[in-house]
Write a protein that binds this DNA or RNA. Structure first.
Length: 694
DNA sequence: TGACCTGAC
């Protein structure tokens, strides 16, 4: 099993905080990690101490020494790239320095975050440090929550929120500075924002308006790319407070990473004193549940003198109450072992982790524009991801990371994870860019360009939905497309809502679309499968998953949505609450757009007709041999086991998405009439038929 | 016939 290796070579990084480095001298990311910083609270954050304590804490941050130099630089620059290790305090301090230094006072300083919790907790922290009430000088805006006012000068928001704001204000006129934080994560929203803020800055300059300052903040990665993209912007380095991490590699290549993980966990467990906790990175729910069971079984029969063990699974679809357990400290004499997906890489930070076991594997989505297929596959992590995982071991003290692959194997990993924008369907992004009135969306200035095929496929999908048209060789939004862009939804779902009045079922479609646009409300613990099936029976509709979900939502509303009911019915109450919020938001947008709101009540036929008319490009038909083939490209597909139609064989179905895992599965199915499809898009099917003949 | 990495508007 993994042995040897040894500590990492000493880090080569620039010494001085805020020294300007020439291009191309990116620091090597070797030594990692972190001090307890005021960021990424997922566990309930305790309120900070006395205000004088806060002041001294602010002054003791490494960044404080560099304050003067930093302000001098930022004052004169249009764009800057700021590289700071975790614990440098950059996210909480830079916005305050700018404000205190009178930079950008004529407008608001925006700080974006990929996650809601981060935006909220950072705003809370900074308003505490400024000794002001949250929502006054310092505020935040995330979906469903806007805690800002006329006085707000420092505003934390999710990157998706800033992007949505930009539709109404492409010049971002109210902002004087935009800080894009966690840029190295390269979420799809951050990547689109790069181009949008760059365009806004340029346009404001051309129009002689007040300048827009752009600051990109990142961990020590991708510096050259960021700097080049922002016209050679200078790179400023900040020191963090980091604890050393020792890295151990496997001596030999491991054929079975699960077995290797198991052996490593128990080897650590027998040798290390408690309560030093272990975090293991695995790939998915099923694997984690199985490994949890195995570990618990083995832990029952440990030799005398060996500490006890508590084993906890962690993945996103786990109910919130169970997720919270990973934050509890293990009882005395026990060691905590957390088995997690990549949710523990960035979204959830667990205190007290001393050991990280990295299988080097991750389950991730890829998108193939040729087939239009999303492929979910277990694959190797990137080097950057492996460093991120290792870093989770040293948040309070020095740590150890066991990599279940050899150093040679590691060297062959990709340097960076492919940015999301190159891995997903771009229809939503294209619609958003068109709504921003970007002159030519096909040549939009992306930092990492998606393939021309992916861009083309997205535009074709929008054309099929009737959202775009060509005018004087320019692609523009149709009136329908503009309405679609008003909804925070995938374009096909926006279209479904806009079709609903024709079928007098807008209320029901709003419910269904809301249910489909958040994480599943259904909780399926593998160990209690029979129970789940039994309680779910009463909701199941032979018409498919959409109507079944509608039944569940109606039942939830009938008992006015209590938690107990959710628990009994294996419904994720947190996601169900979110569905209510989303639905209310979508309904408001409908009212603003003067869309008539009618209910079809018990007439589910109309609902299914509406779905057929908007999802006609996502349909499959039963073949003579009992398999399914998609109507458009005759791709062989199968009904996903999670569907209520799994054991049925309807002649014709629409589906929300295809997902390729072991097979090519249709997910979320609705039984439809083949005739409806032809009525919905006669031209489309005539074209497909012609293409099939040739 | 047998299964869903993670965020976000």
């Amino acid at each position: 099993m993994p042995q040897g290796g040894g500590p990492l070579p000493p880090p080569k990084r620039p010494k001085l905080a805020s020294a300007t480095a020439p291009l191309g001298s990116a620091p090597r990311r070797a030594m990692l990690l972190a001090a307890p910083g005021p960021k990424r609270h997922t566990a309930p954050a305790s309120s900070a101490g006395s205000s004088s304590g806060l002041d001294s804490q602010r002054r003791s941050l490494p960044i404080f020494q560099a304050r003067g130099t930093l302000l001098g630089q930022l004052r004169s620059l249009d764009c800057a790239v700021l590289i700071g290790e975790t614990g440098s305090g950059k996210t909480t301090q830079i916005p305050q320095y700018l404000y205190e230094g009178g930079i950008g006072r004529q407008g608001i300083v925006a700080v974006t975050q990929p996650r809601r919790v981060a935006a909220i907790s950072l705003a809370t922290r900074v308003s505490d440090e400024k000794k002001t009430e949250l929502g006054k000088l310092v505020g935040y805006t995330v979906r469903f929550e806007d805690l800002t006012s006329e006085e707000t000068k420092i505003k934390f928001l999710t990157d998706g929120m800033l992007l949505r704001e930009a539709i109404g204000d492409p010049l971002m006129a109210k902002y004087s500075v935009v800080i894009l934080d966690e840029a190295h994560e390269r979420t799809i929203h951050t990547d689109v924002l790069f181009g949008v803020v760059k365009a806004a800055q340029k346009r404001r300059k051309e129009l002689g308006k007040s300048p827009l300052k752009i600051i990109i903040m990142s961990a020590t990665m991708d510096v050259d790319l960021f700097s080049q993209y922002f016209n050679g912007a200078p790179v400023l380095y900040l020191e963090g407070r980091q604890h050393p991490i020792q890295i151990f590699y496997a001596k030999q290549s491991q054929s079975d990473y699960l077995q290797a993980a198991l052996v490593t966990v128990f080897q650590i467990h027998q040798e290390a004193p408690p309560p030093q906790d272990i975090l293991v990175f695995l790939t998915g729910q099923e694997e984690i549940e199985a490994m949890t069971k195995t570990c618990r079984d083995i832990a029952k029969h440990l030799p005398d003198g060996c500490p006890q063990m508590v084993v906890m699974p962690l993945y996103a679809s786990l109910p919130y109450s169970q997720q919270l357990r990973v934050f509890q400290t293990a009882p005395k004499g026990y060691r905590k072992v957390v088995l997690s997906t990549n949710i523990a890489e960035t979204s959830i930070t667990i205190a007290g982790i001393k050991y990280v076991v990295d299988t080097g594997m991750v389950k991730a989505k890829k998108y193939s524009p040729e087939s239009g297929l999303e492929v979910l596959a277990v694959q190797r992590v990137s080097k950057a991801q492996a460093w991120q995982r290792a870093g989770r071991a040293g948040r309070e003290d020095s740590g150890l990371c066991y990599r279940l692959y050899t150093e040679d194997e590691f060297e062959k990993f990709d340097k960076m994870t492919i940015p999301e924008i190159q891995r997903c369907n771009l229809a939503g992004v294209m619609l958003h860019l068109l709504a921003l009135r970007i002159p030519n969306v096909l040549t939009f200035d992306f930092m990492s360009k998606p393939s021309p095929e992916a861009l083309q496929a997205a535009v074709e999908q929008l054309a099929l939905l009737g959202a775009v048209e060509r005018k004087d060789d320019q692609l523009i939004l149709t009136p329908l497309g503009r309405k679609m862009a008003a909804f925070p939804l995938e374009p096909k779902f926006s279209k479904t809502i806009l079709m609903a009045p024709k079928f007098h079922c807008t209320e029901e479609i709003l419910t269904i679309v809301s249910l489909l646009s958040v994480d599943s409300v259904l909780y399926n613990p593998p160990s209690r499968r029979d129970e789940v099936q039994a309680v779910r029976k009463k909701f199941i509709s032979s018409e498919g998953d959409h109507i079944t979900l509608l039944n569940i939502y109606r039942a939830f509303k009938n008992i006015s949505g209590n938690r107990e009911w959710c628990k009994e019915n294996f419904v994720n109450s947190r996601n169900m609450m979110l569905v209510s919020d989303v639905r209310a938001q979508l309904r408001d947008i409908c009212i603003k757009l003067s869309i008539p709101l009618e209910s079809s009540r018990s007439d589910t036929g109309n609902i299914r007709r509406c779905l057929a008319h908007s999802l006609f490009m996502n349909t499959a038909e039963l073949q003579a041999d009992g398999t399914y083939a998609t109507t458009d490209t005759h791709q062989l597909v199968a009904i996903h086991p999670s569907s209520v139609l799994f054991h049925c064989k309807p002649a014709c179905v629409t589906y929300n998405e295809l997902l390729h895992t072991n097979k090519c599965y249709m997910r979320d199915l609705c039984v439809v009439d083949a005739d409806w499809l032809y009525d919905a898009a006669p031209e489309y099917f005539r074209r497909k038929l012609r293409a099939a003949k040739n």
